[in-house]
Design a protein around this nucleic acid. Structure first.
Lengths: 163, 163
DNA sequence: CAAAATAATATGCATTTGCAATTATAAATC
DNA sequence: GATTTATAATTGCAAATGCATATTATTTTG
């Protein structure tokens, strides 16, 4: 391969260009590469279960934080609101989630996961756990925890909502 | 918020469930959240320049490693090969890249970035650098470097190609 | 408290995407 | 060395996506 080598002097310029940093030192690039594989691998497992990425993400979030307004769920699940709306149509008609009007604000629809929904996610979870384990293979616990700590800071830095 | 708390007692399972780990401790979740924002923010900047995510990713990779076969470029750029094929149609007709048959293997088309292509990427780079800086705001250099080191290990663990 | 601005969700529609099939070339096998 | 198998790239097509908009409800403002 012919990747440009990193320069010896790593001085504080206004900002380095991508060619100077190098793809393999540019965190967003590496993260896109890793999550591209993670999501593609997971998608393979989902198709057998009749799930798509938006549907799976909604279920995964709801399995941890139930009864969310759709707009919040869209943020947590990293799915466009309109895409999520349609994914929820399918999940609801398959009985994996249920829509319930918010009693305090009738603009809001809250989404709850059903037992069937939890069961569907349970079926997928072994695959998720396997890919997750593969990702951190030979990476010590301490390093993984430091990594997660940095991720949490990054999310705080970049997010546009309070959560 | 109403995140479920971990149960007090749980029998020794082969692996924890997502609810036990919690979204904010699950690295793939955090990474999807962060990259979702990063990519959405960047997309905003790209539209003004007539770029899309696949087109921008192809250019970004080529600015570092030029003259790649399309299939390799698809891996580097994290874009489906068929999507990339069409993105290259547009980039080529806009003069940002050029297709050249590989002399050794006539199945292969190699893609080169043009000066115009580099110029287009240069126009976007300040925005990329700004979002990148925002992401790592208040995160010390040492921590960022450790983070990147972990990312590199993770990519090695999960990737399906040699690069 | 009426009017205007904001917010939550759903939907119409054009574009984009990804899978599968196609075409063309190279490598492997017998 | 002819035939089978594998690889690279493109393309047809159905499905998914995202933007803009519509609809309904709430909050803010004058």
């Amino acid at each position: 391969m012919n990747e440009a080598k990193a320069p010896e002097t790593e001085k504080a310029e206004p900002f380095q260009r991508l060619g100077e940093i190098g793809l393999s030192n540019f965190a967003p690039y590496l993260m896109n590469r890793i999550m591209g594989r993670y999501n593609a691998d997971l998608r393979q497992e989902m198709t057998g279960l009749g799930l798509t990425t938006p549907k799976m993400r909604a279920l995964a979030v709801l399995s941890v934080i139930d009864d969310l307004p759709i707009s919040d769920l869209a943020v947590y699940a990293v799915v466009e609101q309109s895409t999520l709306s349609r994914a929820l149509d399918q999940l609801a008609s398959d009985g994996l989630v249920r829509r319930a009007p918010d009693p305090n604000d009738s603009r809001v629809t809250r989404i709850g996961i059903t037992d069937t929904g939890r069961a569907a996610l349970d079926q997928l979870w072994p695959s998720m756990a396997r890919i997750y384990a593969q990702m951190f293979k030979d990476i010590p616990d301490e390093e993984r925890q430091a990594f997660v700590t940095t991720l949490q800071k990054m999310l705080k830095n970049i997010r546009k909502h309070d959560f």
